[in-house]
Simulated scan of single mutants.
Amino acid sequence: MSRRRSRVMNEKFKEELAKDLGFYETVESKGWKGIRAEDAGNMVKRAVEMAKQGLVEGQYKK
């Protein structure tokens, strides 16, 4: 059985989170694979916090 991956966060939203968390320069130079696991975890935590607070509603639509 194959696993489907869904894109929960679009690129614009991920870029804004990376800027807010201070590692966007790494994303620009090395891509998303260049970030540390800790940074990825912090990005997810921040996205969840924002979703709980209702801050994401419609701001980052494709």
Rank of each mutant, 00 (worst) to 15 (best):
E25R: 13
K12W: 14
M9A: 10
E28M: 13
V56Y: 04
M43P: 02
L21N: 13
S6Q: 12
G22Y: 15
E28G: 05
A51K: 15
E38V: 05
Y60K: 02
V56H: 09
R7H: 06
G31C: 02
V27F: 05
M43Y: 05
K45R: 14
E16P: 03
R36D: 05
K12Y: 15
R5F: 15
K45Y: 11
K12N: 10
G31P: 12
R46E: 12
Y24C: 02
K30G: 02
V27A: 06
K52A: 06
W32L: 01
G31R: 02
R5P: 00
M50D: 03
K12D: 08
A51C: 08
E11P: 00
A37I: 09
K61W: 07
K12S: 13
M50F: 14
A18E: 00
K61H: 13
E38G: 10
K14M: 02
Q53F: 01
Q59Y: 00
F13H: 13
A37L: 09
E57W: 02
M43L: 15
S6K: 12
W32A: 01
V56N: 08
A18G: 05
G34I: 01
R7I: 03
N42Y: 04
T26H: 09
K45N: 12
R5L: 15
K45G: 07
V8I: 12
Y24N: 01
E28I: 11
V27W: 03
V48I: 07
E38D: 11
E15C: 11
V48Q: 05
E15M: 09
G31I: 06
E25I: 00
M50Q: 13
E28H: 09
E28P: 08
E57R: 12
